[in-house]
């Protein structure tokens, strides 16, 4: 079982590496410069996929949280924590690369545009949720607390996506009612970058979940050890 899991992870890592190499080649060797913005527009090919992966990660965290509240399985707690962490990592990338793209194009690092503001609120919420988890005492309560926070937090995610449709904004709209507003070569490059970062997310999630499950098992063993009568004589060093 474990060997099969290892094998699946290695296949996933291999696919992720291949798609990442293909994506980098498409971004820097294939797709032409955008006529108005020039080379800086290439930030787009990792900015948009990072935001997409962040949305996916928060969806997985909320789903794992909901499932945890039904099943009380420790592995689901590890999944929700790992996915929320990755969501924060990818939304940080989306925010910072967006800011670096905005500076030469909008002539500002930041503006309180609805898309940017809702993304920042989402990011702050998940950072705060991860920090608050550490303040809860018992692991069971930590898991339940996080599950509730991740489920509630996900309400903001569709709002981030829809912000550019609900309010007046300067943020470009990529998906219109008539399809993608992109040239075929740009769409191909974007598609490969989305695939590459999604596979990377899956790889890192699998590794982080394993570490999370181990952390829980070891802390359970440590707590069990400390309740034994001989624990005072020789502690864990």
């Amino acid at each position: 079982m474990s060997q099969r899991r290892d094998c699946r992870l290695f296949v996933l890592i291999g696919l992720s590496a291949l798609s990442m190499a293909a994506s980098l080649w498409l971004v820097f060797g294939y797709v032409p410069n955008e006529q108005i913005m020039g080379p800086v527009q290439r930030i787009f090919y990792f900015h948009v996929p990072s935001a997409w992966v962040a949305f996916l990660a928060f969806l997985v965290a909320a789903a794992a949280g909901l499932y945890y509240l039904l099943r009380f399985d420790w592995r689901l707690d590890a999944v929700q924590v790992a996915s929320a962490e990755l969501g924060v990592v990818f939304s940080t990338i989306a925010l910072v690369t967006g800011s670096l793209w905005a500076r030469p194009i909008w002539n500002t690092w930041w503006t309180w545009d609805p898309r940017l503001t809702t993304t920042l609120v989402m990011w702050l919420y998940y950072v705060a949720a991860s920090m608050l988890r550490g303040l809860v005492e018992t692991p069971e309560r930590q898991a339940r607390f996080s599950a509730v926070l991740y489920i509630i937090g996900f309400v903001n995610v569709p709002l981030v996506f829809l912000a550019i449709r609900l309010w007046t904004t300067i943020h470009p709209v990529l998906f219109t009612s008539s399809g993608f507003a992109l040239e075929p070569s740009m769409l191909l490059t974007l598609g490969m970058s989305v695939l590459a970062l999604t596979l990377l997310y899956a790889c890192v999630l699998a590794i982080r979940v394993r570490v999370g499950v181990l952390e829980t098992e070891i802390s359970t063993l440590q707590r069990h050890w400390s309740t034994l009568p001989h624990a005072d004589e020789g502690g864990l060093e």
Binding site: V40, R42, W101
Partner: peptide, 8 residues
């Protein structure tokens, strides 16, 4: 313009 791309 390219420096922003590299930084990102």
């Amino acid at each position: 313009n390219t420096a922003y791309l590299v930084a990102a």
